[in-house]
Each structure stands twice: as C-alpha cells, then as structure tokens.
Amino acid sequence: MSIETYLPFWQKLTPTQRETLSRAATTHRVQRGTIVHNGSEDCVGLLLIVSGQLRAFILSDEGKEITLYRLLSRDICLFSASCMLNSIQFDISIEAEQDTTFYKIPTKVYHHLMQESAPVANYTNELISARFSDVMWLMDQILYKRLDSRLAAFLLEESALTGATELKITHDAIARHLGSAREVVTRMLKYLHSEGAVTLSRGSITIADEKKLRGLAQESLR
C-alpha cells in the first residue's frame, strides 16, 4: 500500500510536495522487542504504521516503565520526530510489541512541509492534541483510579487487540505497562481470580467472565 493512503492531507499537497514526500519516505521492518525510538537520544522521524503494533512509553529515573499509548496499523507516531517541535521536550521511547512494518518520513522533510502547507500544520496540531489527551487521560487514571480497575481495563484492551481471551503475557510485562510493581500486579490478579473474572496459569491469563471484568474496569474504560 502506497504512502498516500496513510496521509489525510495528501490531496492538499502540491505535486512537488508529493514528489518530495514520496522520495524521502522509506519502508522499515523491525522485529518484536526492537526499540524504534529511544527518548531524547534520537529523532528518527515521523512513523506511519503499515502493520504490526508499537508501544509508546516513558521511563522514570528509577527504571520504571509506563505505557502511554499503543500505535496500530494506519496510526501515525509524531513524537518519534519530537525534535522538530520546539516547545515540546518528551523523553518518550517507542518499542515494537509485534513484528512491525512502517514508513519513516525524515524529520527535516516533514518539518519543511509543515512550514509550507497549512493542511499539514493543522493535521499535526490535531495529532499533538489527540496524544496530549491520551496522556492526560492516563495521568488521571494513575492519580485517581484504583489499580484493580486499571488492570481489568488493561486485560480487556489486550483481549480486544489479540482477539483472544487467553492472554500470553507475564505479570512483569503488565507491571511495565501500568507503571506498577510485579508483586502488586500479582496480588491484584489473584484478587481478580478470586472474583471469578480471570483464571491464572504460568505465562498466561484467561478472561473467565468478561462481564464481571468489565464491571470491575468500568471507571478505567474509554
């Protein structure tokens, strides 16, 4: 699939701008677990996801991770080109959660387009606003919502992403997503098990009662 199908402003570009963008964009394929963007240490460019799944996360000084949002097919990752956003300093890292294929648009090329084209600038501002909304929603969850609710919502999200009720995920991986400790996640999972919402086995968690799990997750569902 060609790059123009991923850019809603494509038809509003001039022929020269389209040619420049088409020539500059490169296709990349990475394996699961690859760090695609490493915080402020690099500015790899704008990423357009063709297939697979990426995870945007932040890392505290103590080494604790927390997932900000996921990027799926047809999503666009702007903060991997955060160096072009003068007033925004985000130490966000991007990791491939699955084998992933994406287009990469060099930062300088996209920044030049933003300066030349109002539709590109407007689209970029909308994208920034949407991501800020994601982050603010997450902060509200961390500060004001119970961990059992957040955990239940996470399990439902994972089930929707994978299309399965059996989730092949470790307690440690869940803790990294939620910005918690593995021991706390294990305790919360045992609570969900005691409520009959999930069953636990080594290396996997199975949703046993989706309705009950959804009730527990109510305040953390979007």
Rank of each mutant, 00 (worst) to 15 (best):
P8S: 15
Q11A: 12
K12I: 02
T14F: 00
T14A: 05
P15V: 06
T16V: 10
Q17M: 06
T20S: 01
T20I: 06
A24H: 05
A24K: 07
A25Q: 01
A25D: 00
H28W: 10
V30R: 07
Q31Y: 15
G33I: 05
T34L: 11
V36G: 02
V36L: 03
N38T: 11
N38Q: 13
S40R: 15
S40W: 03
V44K: 03
L46Y: 07
L46R: 05
I49V: 15
V50R: 08
L54A: 10
S60E: 04
D61M: 01
G63K: 11
T67Y: 02
R70Y: 10
L71S: 03
L71W: 14
L71M: 05
I76F: 02
L78C: 08
S82E: 05
M84W: 12
L85K: 08
N86A: 12
S87H: 11
I88E: 06
F90H: 10
D91N: 12
I94K: 10
I94D: 14
A96V: 10
E97R: 07
Q98P: 00
Q98H: 02
T100K: 08
F102T: 02
F102H: 09
P106D: 07
V109T: 15
H112F: 14
L113F: 11
S117P: 00
S117V: 07
V120N: 03
A121L: 15
N122T: 13
T124K: 07
N125E: 11
N125A: 14
E126H: 14
L127I: 02
A130H: 11
S133Y: 14
V135C: 11
V135K: 04
M136R: 13
W137T: 14
W137V: 04
I142Y: 05
L143H: 14
K145N: 12
K145S: 09
R146S: 13
S149G: 03
R150I: 01
R150W: 00
L151S: 00
L151Q: 01
A153G: 00
L155G: 01
E158K: 01
S159Q: 06
S159N: 03
L161P: 00
L167E: 09
L167R: 01
K168D: 12
I169K: 12
A173Y: 15
H177C: 08
L178R: 13
G179F: 09
G179N: 11
G179S: 04
A181Y: 12
A181T: 15
V184F: 00
Y191W: 14
Y191T: 08
S194P: 01
E195G: 07
G196E: 05
A197P: 08
A197L: 06
A197K: 12
V198T: 15
T199N: 07
L200S: 11
L200I: 13
R202P: 02
G203C: 09
G203I: 08
G203N: 15
T206D: 08
T206I: 06
D209L: 07
K211E: 14
L213W: 13
Q218D: 03
E219Y: 11
S220Y: 05
L221A: 03
R222Y: 02
R222I: 12
